[in-house]
Design a protein around this nucleic acid. Structure first.
Length: 727
RNA sequence: GCUGCUGUAGCUCAGUCGGUAGAGCGCGUCCUUGGUAAGGACGAGGUCGUGGGUUCAAGUCCCACCAGUAGCUCCA
């Protein structure tokens, strides 16, 4: 006889088989009808599940979850995912179910099925779902021992579920299933009592995915959808998405002439138009001043470097696939390189190799002593040696090796440390084509990069002040909606260089500084750079996708690889530690995010066009030019709308073009020696003398005042937005 | 890179059953000379992403490629 404690503190006794729904019914039928799930001792369970089974404790505390509890929404959505899967299985043959969890805004389900689903099929699927919902059949939970569960899924021809039971769930003795009419799915739950509880849902998109998220695995089709408690909330959500799309930096970048990407130049190669370039220049000027104050030294380095440099650093072998191929001085360079790669991968036939050999000969390679019949290692070594004797350059994918060389250009004493070398360094990466995204993911980017060379005892302090710099920079543009992530290595992976001791030391230092920094942070295993752990500042774009902006990285490995040294007080050589840091990350991504952050309505200090002068009629043009000249000499970016349009038109256009200040000049203003000021946000401010107007603008610029920021539609700091309901 | 979708004027988009292109905004010229979110008239602008194919005829149907996009995978 379980005793149940309700949120109001009352305790009641119920029969052994009683469920949360029974408890709800004992209070009232309407409550029972509204109950979607139950919170039993802090765990969410089916409302229809016997309480005694869900939790053995006595008394158990029970909270009935209705629309009022946001946790009920996740349960509702996951049930909706099952209903979608059921509809798909009714409409298509040969469906193999994968996973179907909820996400922060809805749910998806992955299917392996022979036919291709496109958005045109959504109405059919939605209609089928509506029918299932109308039938309002219950979700019924049952358990099977592991062996039987596997057999059961096999009988249902659910091979992916069988595989999951055999591998991912190998340590589970008993597995739960949910039956809903003819549809049965391996699932941890919980679910709503019956399908009829779903009042508003919509399929959103279809996309490809991979079984268990591995690109080497089977390709699946993923259907995305969402569900809400009522149609009104669903409509509001869809509206919000539409609204957010209007803030997309790619849309605004085009609309306001900030940047463009031309296919004639190349994929992922950003062209900064004058207005976008102005914003970027202002940001660069801003941070340059800050860096000088903080003891950084400027450096410049070229866009290419010898391949050997990146072999030493490890970048070249490690990121081979996402770099532009090396530039060879010899015409056969690419050919030999490809030949060598084929040998390394062991996929070459004798015929193919003869072909390579002949082609290389045609290109004037003297390979007469090529060990054709020798072991494959010898052949690889031969080609490698040939390559090493060639001029080989790499479009630089990273600035660190160049900066390392600058450090090495002079002997360093402990008295010189920290050495802080800063550069806006352009780097090139051949990102996968499907990854490119406006300014947020490009193939040519400019990092606001710097490398700090410090002694071991300076690491903590330098790391701390560097974090401060990132915080300062972000707050200067009003970016507060970020999440800090401590990206550590995955100890089980072999993709990291250096000893575990150094890694532990680096991660420990980083964690300690972060803990003392007052920044909330989350720890993410397997997210470190190959040479060291990092603190990453993550922000969300208008579609809710998360991107890394600023980063601070701790590196004990590159100094080792490049044999960096400084002379200590003991007159002996010591190894410095490197801190890599980029507060903006890249200028491209940062400006892209900033466009969305401000919805292109930049604060005065960043606005490409700060002031526009609008003449009342054409005869005001000379005075308008006079005002323009005065403001320009006061340091403002100011234009004159010289069109013969009426002032209403000029105002409307300036408003739509997001110019912060409009100065209307007419005969009255001219005779009084001033201007009529219109503020983009507050509207008409009336007449001001020119001096007063300049003073107002100047103080707004100097304080870098931010008067308006568009609220993001997406929650800022979600650590994870995927709740896995499947096993 | 993978899967789906998309590509028509500078921008946003329409274009039916295959019969060689339309709108609004913008732009240009002229008229209008105005006080805080659109004054009016006329006009110029397009190898319909590229290349093949089917057809008497292709923006429209088919194939390949290029690019964009959503998601997956990747991200120094």
């Amino acid at each position: 006889m379980p005793r149940v404690q309700l949120p109001d503190g009352s305790v009641k006794e119920f029969p052994e088989s009683a469920s949360a729904l029974d408890v709800a019914r004992s209070i009232g039928e309407r409550l029972a009808a509204a109950t979607l799930a139950a919170d039993v001792n802090g765990t969410i369970v089916d409302a229809a599940r016997p309480l005694a089974e869900a939790s053995p404790s006595d008394p158990l505390s029970l909270k009935l979850l209705t629309e009022k509890d946001p946790r009920a929404l996740g349960v509702l959505r996951h049930s909706c995912a099952h209903i979608m899967a059921r509809a798909v299985m009714r409409l298509y043959d040969g469906v193999s179910l994968a996973f179907g969890p909820t996400t922060g805004n809805g749910f998806y389900y992955d299917f392996d099925l022979p036919q291709k689903i496109s958005e045109e099929d959504f109405p059919r699927i939605e209609a089928e779902m509506a029918e299932i919902i109308a039938a309002a059949e219950p979700f019924e939970r049952f358990h099977l021992p592991r062996g039987e569960a596997s057999q059961f899924c096999g009988d249902l021809k659910q091979d992916l579920k069988v595989e999951h039971i055999e591998t991912g769930l190998a340590d589970h003795e008993s597995l739960s299933f949910y039956r809903q009419g003819e549809f049965v799915d391996l699932c941890r739950g919980p679910h709503i009592p019956d399908a009829g509880r779903i009042k508003a849902f919509k399929l959103l998109s279809v996309a490809g995915s991979y079984w268990k998220g591995d690109a080497d695995n089977r390709r699946l089709q993923r259907l995305y959808g969402t569900a809400f408690f009522n149609q009104k909330e669903l409509d509001a959500h869809l509206n919000q998405i539409e609204e957010a799309k209007r803030r997309d930096h790619r849309v605004l970048g085009k609309q306001h002439g900030l940047f463009t990407i031309s296919n004639d130049v190349g994929q992922g190669l950003c062209l900064w138009l004058p207005k976008g370039a102005t914003v970027r220049m202002l940001l660069e000027d801003f941070i340059k001043q800050e860096l000088l104050r903080r003891g950084y030294q400027p450096v410049f380095s070229p866009h290419v470097g010898r391949v050997e440099l990146y072999e030493t650093s490890g970048h070249f072998p490690y990121y081979r696939d996402s770099q532009f191929p090396p530039l060879f001085g010899h015409p056969a360079g690419q050919l030999v390189d490809y030949w060598k790669q084929r040998l390394e991968e062991g996929r070459i036939t004798e015929k193919a190799e003869r072909g390579f050999f002949a082609a290389a000969g045609e290109l004037n390679c003297d390979f007469h002593d090529y060990p054709f019949n020798g072991p494959i290692e010898d052949r690889i070594a031969y080609l490698r040696k040939w390559e090493r004797n060639q001029e080989r350059y790499l479009l630089k994918p990273m600035n660190c090796p160049h900066h390392v060389q600058i450090y090495k250009a002079a002997p360093r004493s402990y008295k010189d440390l920290p050495v802080r070398l800063a550069e806006f360094g352009a780097v090139y990466r051949h990102e996968q084509s499907g990854e490119l995204n406006g300014m947020l993911r490009v193939r040519g980017l400019t990092q606001d990069d710097a490398h700090l060379f410090v002694s071991p005892d300076q690491v903590e302090e330098e790391f701390r002040t560097t974090l401060d710099l990132v915080k300062f920079v972000l707050s200067s543009v009003g970016l507060e909606d970020y999440r800090v992530q401590l990206s550590r290595r995955d100890p089980a992976s072999d993709k990291y260089v250096g000893s575990p001791e150094l890694w532990n030391q680096a991660e420990g230092t980083l964690q300690r500084v972060l803990e003392n920094s007052g920044l909330g942070f989350t720890s993410a295993e397997g997210e470190a750079a190959f040479y060291g752990p990092k603190a990453d500042f993550m922000v969300r774009d208008c579609l809710g996708r998360e991107w890394q902006l600023g980063t601070v990285q701790l590196d004990y490995n590159l100094p080792e690889r490049f044999q960096l040294e400084y002379i200590g007080a003991d007159n002996a050589a010591h190894r410095p530690v490197m801190i890599h840091r980029a507060p903006f990350g890249s200028m491209e991504r940062f400006c892209g995010m900033l466009i969305e952050h401000f919805a292109a309505a930049f604060p005065l200090w960043l606005a490409p066009e700060q002031v526009r002068i609008l003449g009342l009629n054409d005869s005001m043009l000379p005075y308008a030019r006079e005002v323009q000249a005065k403001l320009q000499s006061a340091g403002f970016r100011v234009t004159v709308d010289a069109r013969s349009a009426n002032v209403n038109k000029k105002i409307r256009d300036a408003q739509l073009e997001l110019v912060p200040y409009m100065l209307v000049v007419g005969p009255k203003d001219q005779s009084a020696g001033g201007v009529s000021v219109r503020d983009r946000i507050d509207g008409d401010l009336g007449f001001m003398s020119l001096d007063a107007a300049v003073a107002r603008l100047r103080s707004e610029v100097e304080s870098r005042q931010i008067r308006q920021v568009v609220k993001s539609a997406f929650a800022p700091a979600a650590e994870t937005d995927e709740f896995v309901n499947e096993y």
